[in-house]
Nucleic acid binder design. Sequence first.
DNA 1: CTGTTAGCGCGTTCAA
DNA 2: TTGAACGCGCTAACAG
Lengths: 358, 358
Amino acid sequence: MTQATDSPGGTPTRYRKRATLADVAADLGLNASTVSRALDPSRNSMVSATTRERIIAAAERLGYRPDIPARSLMTGRTQTIVAIAANLGNPTITPVLHGVASRSAIEGVVPIIAETNDDSEVFVDLVDHMLSRRVDAIIVMGARRRDTEAIESAARLVPVVVAFRPLLGVSVPVVMVDDRKGAELVAAHFADLGHEAVTQLPGPSDVMNFVLRDEGFTSVVTERGLDLLLAPGQAEVPTFEEGRRLMRELLESGNPMPTAVFAHNDLMAIGAMSVLEERGIKVPDDISIAGYNDMALTAFLACPLTTVRYPGWDVGHAAADTAIRMLAGEENVASVCVEPVFVPRASTTSPQNDKTRS
Amino acid sequence: MTQATDSPGGTPTRYRKRATLADVAADLGLNASTVSRALDPSRNSMVSATTRERIIAAAERLGYRPDIPARSLMTGRTQTIVAIAANLGNPTITPVLHGVASRSAIEGVVPIIAETNDDSEVFVDLVDHMLSRRVDAIIVMGARRRDTEAIESAARLVPVVVAFRPLLGVSVPVVMVDDRKGAELVAAHFADLGHEAVTQLPGPSDVMNFVLRDEGFTSVVTERGLDLLLAPGQAEVPTFEEGRRLMRELLESGNPMPTAVFAHNDLMAIGAMSVLEERGIKVPDDISIAGYNDMALTAFLACPLTTVRYPGWDVGHAAADTAIRMLAGEENVASVCVEPVFVPRASTTSPQNDKTRS
DNA sequence: CTGTTAGCGCGTTCAA
DNA sequence: TTGAACGCGCTAACAG
């Protein structure tokens, strides 16, 4: 069986050719148009009940399947939207994709999921490729500031929605969580617990989420009269490793130590805690730590993490909904802002004593 | 701006029409075929260098993008493969998708990611839909036993690869991790630690992974002469909640208690540990727990989890590679089996005393 | 109700 | 080296 025999000389065709409308029509001595009409729910009333049934039976028998790319050539729609993420390894993205898929399914639209690895060059190529595929709409979930131009450019051809990572000053609808509010809740929590010197481990400032978290945290900390100690730097990428690095730098800076630290996401928080544990510094007794996102399992860590729940599913659902409404021709579709939820756990408590080292 | 004005009565066309080959050709007083040739790297040698450059410049200027669906009508290829997962919420799937994307990118193939929610009806519909979209290949990552027929049927039309969740007796290549081996390593670890009475919290038996884990664990436990206590039942779905349920049932069964438990995945293991903690039973002192998959963060749990690393990226990469090779016409493409890695952590230790309750 | 014709955008084939 | 004609599978528009 090393040689296929069904085509004399060329590439062996091991796969069955699919039946077309013409095949079904020929089988019944009908015209392809009639078959097309009989098989389309919105037009099958133009076909007599008897021939319609014959057609349906024949289509079934011959294993007919509509050819969506061919159809899209006429209709201009591919029934496809694409969600472009920065990194599928980010657990926070999963519920967002889930929400997108859920809303799309209702419309018979299929989401394509693509990944940029946070590389702007990849982003531009990917958008270009997706336009070539004639996707009906694009949901940009991995935007950085420098991607604005590419987004505006794509938005002249198809509906584009920015979600997950917001972007300011962009002319397309944005679906986001109120990260400023989420960070404000963390700061208020620190203040309520009686902390007086706090700091943050900031994420990269070209991702708007982290800018908003910074702003929200800073504003409430200032308002409540706490000391906002200088951050030890900024993460290049918001990962476990970078959380470790920033916490190490904080400890080794020789600056006054805070009694509470807001890490801009859970992974960084966990990285920070791992450094503290290595050095015998107790969380939350010696230092309180809060994260952001409420990743899976943060409730089951050695020290369950105080964090802010990121309602990813809702974001994805709203993003797909927005795209689909634009696709339907709705004008001036509004941006959407979803509320985060503060989740206090064991990693934060009142300051135990004044061993703030100088 | 509530009314678009560029089309008299119909739907407002707010989006720019894309340029076609014919547009570029007309702009230059050339024929579309020439433009087509000039823009295809494999045929542009048939065009004089000067006109080629004029064409490339004009295409750029007019914003020409190839229309992939239209092209697929001629070539029969859509440059698309689909990965069908049971549940994107499963963190173990993410690296697999990552691997698929990574291998596909090399080929210019774009992976579509779809989700069945472990519903066989959805699975069948989805496969049907993807065949309608003329995807070039299908990677089935969420197969249950009852899906075999649908898989075989699809495999007559396009290359199909089963991955992640293996399926036995299927005529298509399977890319899997040696779960039997992984479970054997867990059992051997228990035996080496001196445990004498062990059991497992099994996942659903219509997912082959769990059958293999059961077989591997059972065989080594028997071989090494340990008591294999009756499992408290079987999880409907391999989740945190089901892990809790099984552990509760084990504790309340009145049967002799094991000193070590193998949960068929990490989520179930963590669920089980949460029940033990509630009841004041210490892990690993009173009871050892092992999981499977090495999910993110399992190293940072209250009690870091002994587990088996699931090399998801490799599985995804190999699955895409297999699909692409089939697509290239390669015959009798072989199945692939990737080796798991045992990861001992703090949740397992030697039995501390004989407080096995009767 | 059904058939005919045309064309979506592209690549292929044959001619020039 | 370039052009013209055709057809992929489908739907839209018009005839009958």
